[in-house]
Design a protein around this nucleic acid. Structure first.
Lengths: 132, 132
DNA sequence: ATGCTTGCAAACAGTTTGCATCTAA
DNA sequence: TTAGATGCAAACTGTTTGCAAGCAT
């Protein structure tokens, strides 16, 4: 675990790739995006940088079925994930900062944050389910 | 995807194993528990039954780093996971059913439920961090 | 008897790691 | 110069699947 960070071309590319997307890409999608700008970069580097940027709080990751999704960290917000196709979108519910303090008090954990994930069928998958 | 279910000895063992634990065991831990009662049961069977029981809503699964954790579904509640050691405990925050309806309205998703996961250091890991 | 279930092993997906080489500072 | 970063390939973890045999209904 290095303490000092360097600004490599690859690290910048990974961060930019996350910045340039509004959906919530998987590591693989980030890899493909970055790959189109630098066809030498390896998956390992993308994964290493995603973890590093996450630890730095430059980006956040949403644990969705079928792999983590990454997201630019602007403000804390919730996510909605489709139980059928796995699509992830942002939710419009305010972040309840008070809950963190309350849970910390009750459990003794040092709560850093919380994430809420709503699960359900997206409109497209609802339509498909009806079609059967 | 079978529509009809049978009551096999193995399925019962898996369900009982989840019922008999208050912590939030991983699939592997369930497997080891069940294994101690039936040393012929295979991991595949445990995984298959855990998924099946989840779909049946007999149990729920919490997506934690390092693998899903399983839980008897009594009532909807939130979880707290330690970012260091991965321990999972129940949180004491009421389930906000209203949020589901509100998100459903705003997004067009058919929201089935939501899960909230608080992240932070458990007391033991806090102590260890201080010790350094 | 039928077809859901099982056990086994192999396959899989997503991610991490060892190591020699490279490079930012 | 030197510690951090990279690329490659192999290793790993958690989970799923194909198939022949088994068992609940």
């Amino acid at each position: 675990m290095p303490v000092q960070r360097r600004n490599t071309k690859q690290r910048t590319l990974v961060l930019d790739a996350v910045r340039n997307r509004c959906d919530h890409p998987t590591a693989e999608e980030i890899y493909l995006d970055v790959r189109s700008r630098d066809d030498k970069i390896s998956r390992a580097t993308v994964y290493r940088n995603l973890r590093l940027l996450e630890q730095t709080h430059a980006i956040t990751c949403v644990k969705a079925p079928g792999g983590d999704r990454f997201d630019l960290r602007l403000d804390a917000h919730c996510h909605v994930v489709c139980t059928e196709c796995g699509a992830v979108i942002d939710a419009t519910v305010p972040y309840d900062a008070e809950a963190d303090a309350s849970v910390a008090q009750a459990t003794g954990y040092a709560i850093a944050s919380h994430s809420t994930i709503f699960e359900g069928l997206c409109p497209a998958c609802q339509a498909e389910a009806h079609a059967k």
